[in-house]
Simulated scan of single mutants.
Amino acid sequence: MGDGQLPLRDVVAAELRRLILDGTLQPGERLVEDRVAQLLGVSRNPLREAMRVLEAEGFLDVTARRGAFVCQLSARQAEDLFHVRMALEPLGARLAAEVEDRDPALLARAWAIMDLVRESGPEQDKDTLSNLHSELHSLIFELTRNSYLIAIAIPMVKRGQWLLRQSAPLQNPAAWSEHHGLLAAIEAGDADLAEAAARHHVLRVRNSLRPLLDHD
Rank of each mutant, 00 (worst) to 15 (best):
L88M: 13
P90D: 09
D103R: 14
E100C: 05
L116H: 15
P104H: 03
N131D: 11
L116V: 02
V99F: 02
M114F: 01
A110T: 10
I113S: 07
A97E: 06
L132R: 10
A105Y: 07
A87G: 00
L91K: 14
E119S: 15
A108P: 04
A97D: 10
L116F: 08
I113Y: 04
E89S: 06
Q124A: 15
L88E: 13
A105P: 00
P122H: 03
A93W: 06
L95A: 08
E98A: 09
M86I: 00
M86F: 05
R118K: 12
G92E: 04
M86W: 00
M86H: 08
D101G: 05
D103E: 15
R94E: 13
S120D: 07
A110W: 00
P122A: 11
R94K: 13
S130N: 14
P104G: 05
E119Q: 15
V84L: 15
L95W: 09
W111C: 01
R102T: 05
Q124E: 10
E119F: 00
F82G: 00
L129C: 02
W111A: 01
D125M: 02
E89Q: 14
E89H: 10
P90M: 09
L88K: 08
F82R: 00
A97L: 10
R85Q: 11
A105D: 11
D125H: 06
A112G: 13
R109C: 04
L91I: 09
R94T: 08
A110R: 07
V117I: 14
I113R: 01
A105L: 07
A96I: 12
D80A: 02
L106W: 00
D115L: 05
P90W: 06
A105S: 13
M114E: 14
T128L: 14
P90K: 13
D127Q: 09
L107K: 05
S120C: 10
L107F: 04
E119C: 08
P104Y: 06
K126D: 11
D103F: 01
L116S: 14
E123C: 06
R85C: 06
E98K: 12
K126S: 14
L95N: 09
G92A: 06
A110K: 08
L91P: 07
V84E: 15
D125A: 11
G121E: 08
A87T: 12
E79R: 09
E123N: 11
D125N: 14
A112Y: 03
S120E: 13
R102W: 05
G92Q: 06
L95I: 09
A93E: 04
A93K: 05
R118G: 15
P122Q: 08
L91R: 13
A93C: 12
A97N: 11
Q124K: 07
E123G: 08
A112F: 01
R118F: 02
R109P: 01
L106F: 00
A108H: 12
A97G: 06
P104I: 01
A108K: 11
P122T: 11
V84S: 06
E123F: 03
A97K: 10
P122S: 14
D101H: 12
I113L: 09
Q124L: 15
N131K: 12
E79T: 10
D80L: 04
A87D: 05
D101P: 02
P104W: 02
L106S: 04
M114V: 15
L132P: 14
G121T: 03
R109L: 03
H83N: 08
A108E: 15
F82M: 03
G92M: 07
R102L: 01
E79Y: 02
